[in-house]
Write a protein that binds this DNA or RNA. Sequence first.
DNA 1: ATCAAAATCACCCTAAAGTATGACGGAAAA
DNA 2: TTTTCCGTCATACTTTAGGGTGATTTTGAT
Lengths: 154, 154
Amino acid sequence: MTTNYLAKYRSVIIYGVSLAALLFLLKWLEWRFIIVDYAFEIYAGFVAVIFTGLGIWLALKLSKPKTITVEKQVFINAGEFLLDKSQLNKLGMSNRELEVLQLMAQGLSNQQIAEKLFVSLNTIKTHSSKVFEKLEVQRRTQAIEKGKRLSLIP
Amino acid sequence: MTTNYLAKYRSVIIYGVSLAALLFLLKWLEWRFIIVDYAFEIYAGFVAVIFTGLGIWLALKLSKPKTITVEKQVFINAGEFLLDKSQLNKLGMSNRELEVLQLMAQGLSNQQIAEKLFVSLNTIKTHSSKVFEKLEVQRRTQAIEKGKRLSLIP
DNA sequence: ATCAAAATCACCCTAAAGTATGACGGAAAA
DNA sequence: TTTTCCGTCATACTTTAGGGTGATTTTGAT
């Protein structure tokens, strides 16, 4: 708490101390040059310079920094695809079924999918039928469309 | 040019003029208070206050504003779809063919497309065949996949 | 060990999709 | 004006997709 208070008004305190120090300095100068007649102008100039500097320093320390906020637009790459696993559970979609759906979306025929997965055509037909059931669609094109909407496929 | 130069160094010029004015003021004060013995401290304090204020004013005028750059994340709206017309020309795709392709991508059957466009099923078959030719594919699922890749459909 | 999915496959049948070919009217380009 | 392309439609045929039913094996969880 105390340190915080000190830190907050540090500049003001320093200013006060500086003023005190300067007072002593001035008194000393006064005493020294009191003998010399032409010391008056020098003294005034000295004071002017010192306090101008002090004012500048004070202003820079205490004034809130003038800030210009520039908004820099950072474009986020929205291309990332993340599979919606909660959706998978909700639909009760199995791994294999999802796999078949993905290959369907790539434009493969049932025959090609069968070859790719090393299973028979009939197996793929069974899988795709289940996919259609679970997605509540009739055709593979609809399945693809809905699969994309539900973030099951990119 | 000249006005620009003046504008740029306006603060400095004003400062100079102010200094000159103050010099006159000081001279006058000197002359006035030279009689009074205790005028010295008053004079010094006056100078100190004036020049502190001047320093503060100078600093505030001349200090460069700090520029803070804030990165603002802008999520690019991935929904923006722009049809690639140059691609259409390159492929020699007609309006009707593109229309059929779009409806295919929405999961419609040939029959449904025919009904939607008020033409016969055979007409749609002809169109889709030409679409497949031009896209160099065999199946509608492939056509959809390639159509999306080529920005023909969203 | 048991039970429930998941994955596999088969057969049959229908519907939809795709290929090939030809035809015709209209509009735009040559 | 002729040619070319678009859009339309038809017929015939082949291939692929999809629905229904049933069966076996594998796998994971209780």
